[in-house]
Design a protein around this nucleic acid. Sequence first.
DNA 1: TCCTCTGTGTTGAACGATTGAAAAAAGAAA
DNA 2: TTTCTTTTTTCAATCGTTCAACACAGAGGA
Lengths: 330, 330
Amino acid sequence: MQDTIEKNSMATIFDVAQEAGVSVVTVSRLMNNPKIVSVRTAEKVQAAIESLHYQPSQIARSLMGKRTNTIGVIVPNITDPFFNRWYRYLEEFASARSINLLMCNTDDDLKKEINYVKLLHSQRVDGIIIAPYSRKPVEYLLKIHMKFILFDRIMEDINANFVTTDHYQGGVEAIEYLTALGHTKIVLLKGGGVILADTDRHKAYVDVLRAHRIPYDPRLVADCGFQEEEAYRVVYELMSGPDAPTAIFAISAGMAQGAIRAIQELNLSIPGDVSVICFDELPGQRIFRPAITHVTQPVKELAERVMEGLLAKINGTEVEGGVSMYLPPQ
Amino acid sequence: MQDTIEKNSMATIFDVAQEAGVSVVTVSRLMNNPKIVSVRTAEKVQAAIESLHYQPSQIARSLMGKRTNTIGVIVPNITDPFFNRWYRYLEEFASARSINLLMCNTDDDLKKEINYVKLLHSQRVDGIIIAPYSRKPVEYLLKIHMKFILFDRIMEDINANFVTTDHYQGGVEAIEYLTALGHTKIVLLKGGGVILADTDRHKAYVDVLRAHRIPYDPRLVADCGFQEEEAYRVVYELMSGPDAPTAIFAISAGMAQGAIRAIQELNLSIPGDVSVICFDELPGQRIFRPAITHVTQPVKELAERVMEGLLAKINGTEVEGGVSMYLPPQ
DNA sequence: TCCTCTGTGTTGAACGATTGAAAAAAGAAA
DNA sequence: TTTCTTTTTTCAATCGTTCAACACAGAGGA
């Protein structure tokens, strides 16, 4: 009696019930099914809720076997312009549905991937959207029967749904664009060969060159592991050497940025001395001159499809194995 | 006996206990204090844990009054380069401490702010890092005794800890830089006047001009609400009119980008016709020519201080009201 | 008067873990 | 054998909420 102020802990449903002079179940009913409570009681309870600033504990709710209303998102790097813009939409869709996102950055590091997958497991998230680097985390998810969707990645031998841009088609259009301009010495700046986006675009490179009877020169194809610095180094070397290439296809905006720095440093001009094309928008694309031609991925749509696909899985309303591929190039 | 495969639900501590032929308490003890369990038993239990892919439910743990090991982060827009880079570091620090971050984008919208604060409340996060637009969410946090730190914002009349760059000092250095170059007609592209970063930099603008006996021309100060398009419009108009200004100070990189687009469109040169300086790095800063002078915020340090400050609050190890201000300009 | 129906409200178990105390085995030392 | 440790188990309570089942009152019908 002497002290009605709760010092530390937050108000519980019990406090509300006491304050309103009803039982906890009555309060619970009001929260979940307001219709079945009389108006007079509802008012009393509502007043108590407001005066105590009560918010039901999602934790306790989740424990009752319900949803956690949380989805885990595992990406290599949220700073990357592609993932960044994509995630922003994802968050928007989630927020509109009162779903929380737990975002995890892996830096394409196997250990971090596993850690995060276990973390999300112990958080009992309802589902996971993952752009994995290795197979391990996906295998783990399968073992524990976690619902998930692969994003921007495919694992052919694993029965898992995925959502991704059609990287092959995008690669084809990019290289066709360059060959149409008459280029034959085209540099390919690629990742490590593990990721779908990488292998597919590489394949496109090979196929288009062959179709145009342009010999494949392995010296022009460089594994940069999606690293800007590495791309810078490679391009600097190639462009300052003899028989310099005339075009560059960068598989990511980051590597394109490295390439451009090298070109600038050598006082070469774009597109006078060398043409550059890349996937995704360059940071600062809108103000960079000359404008760099690029293949755009439908970020918003990708976010939408992934979210819808996962929710369908969670709610058990999915129809087929949800496979989607898009691509509007520019 | 006929069916040991658990179809839907995940393994619980009970399943592990059964599988290992011990009691749940023993399993729990092993997880939390491995020393007090004999090696032989530990091995049995460990085997069961692995075969069932058991991960203790963080939900149940949290319910026992422990931590949730989750921190809420409320920012206006994660796509903004400043918040983006900052958040990346924050996530790194959190991950290193096995802490989850729940990230919330408000778009500086009051309704979203309130919703998210309530959401984090019901999630029983251990603390919140917030860059609020309005007072409401902060007042709410105070009412429910939630631990939080203001980031990049200050509310003078509210007793709350904060971490921010010294925006006034940064503004002073930026304007001093321009006046030292002899500029007197300096445009100020600012936000809406609500946010600290905005008012402080505006104040710096006024003070430095006065110190140099340069008259204050209100036509040169434009509220762009941090919108790139608005900045574009304003600069286009000012630069194409008579008596065009010779320098532009943009309070954010986004507005600087808008300004630069306008300048490019008018076929004016930087810094020949007009100088540009801004806060934070331009997207594509590394490849944009000419390089735009800018005031950098110590993103990594900001993330570190905020995280440490909040953890100190949560752990009850804080010393004083944690007020921090930094700024290395460039 | 008795019975049933309706609209309320209450009771107690359940969710998955942790924790303290106490009891029960098992092994070692006396 | 007794006593003392060490290890493990049982028992019970707790966290905040939901939910099935039940109780109780008043209304209406037989």
